[in-house]
Design a protein around this nucleic acid. Sequence first.
DNA 1: GGGCGTTTGTTATAGACGATTACAATTCCC
DNA 2: GGGAATTGTAATCGTCTATAACAAACGCCC
Lengths: 156, 156
Amino acid sequence: MSPHRPRALAPIVRVPGLDYDVLDELLGYSLRRAQVAMFGAFHEATRGMDITPPRFTALVIIGANPGLSQSVLGRVLGIARSGAMVLTDWFEAQGLVERKRRPNDGRAWGLHLTRRGEQRVASLKARVRRHDLQRARRLSAEERRVLLRLLEKLCG
Amino acid sequence: MSPHRPRALAPIVRVPGLDYDVLDELLGYSLRRAQVAMFGAFHEATRGMDITPPRFTALVIIGANPGLSQSVLGRVLGIARSGAMVLTDWFEAQGLVERKRRPNDGRAWGLHLTRRGEQRVASLKARVRRHDLQRARRLSAEERRVLLRLLEKLCG
DNA sequence: GGGCGTTTGTTATAGACGATTACAATTCCC
DNA sequence: GGGAATTGTAATCGTCTATAACAAACGCCC
């Protein structure tokens, strides 16, 4: 029916009694594991809605920055232009995003949420935020703040 | 020449002047961005060595837990058994890992590093650790410790 | 000890995702 | 104006991973 259906990512379980050696000291590995864990929360939040992380990010970015181009969208997502186009095609087919010509630049499209897209992204934001908080409930509010700050600092 | 050559992952750049809306408050997104950034360090560390993150993890795990089975390896990596097998096939073709029959269990193989595999993993660990530290140099030693602890706590 | 469900490795197949390349239209800059 | 750069588009390829099906070996239970 739907062209793509987001699948659950297999969790990276910590096998008891196994020696993880240097992996526990590496930020790269720890971040990967944490990211997969949080992806699980995302998957729950968007179950049955045909939404993947890149799609969610794209909808939020377009909603907050109406009129941006596909190239910029690709740069934000860290994918090539061709991928940004496939994404936009899908959004358009779903009636969530529309391309509008720009008066000053005949090359680039301007991306905008449709009315339906706005409703969808509002709903998604609420769900994703709720599940993100829920999955990270082992952290206190203070710890969560610290974590976000350190991640921000890490990426510069 | 080499069958697979790991490619660099496009970085997720922070486009200046763009509104990221709710994304900055989501652990899932922040973790993803940080993970991609640290993946860049990994890519540098292993340039030209035909090593991907799963391959590195697998080599370290096999080295620290000789005799483990392909199924357990798959569980550690968060991939299906079939994937663990493709991985093991590749290691064997490279002469880094060998499968040995187990006396008590005729189904599962026991995975072991070869002499060459041991040398390779020792070299890789040193390089990856160095680049991991280097890429995260914006963080003080204390901040790095805190970050690792929070990530550990998050995953439970 | 016989039988049945489970686990493991294996193989083949399919799908998702993104990169790469090439091309045409447009814009920018000297 | 004219050449370099940017944008969208299309076609193609490669990599990774899941899924399903199968055979062999194991464990359990009576």
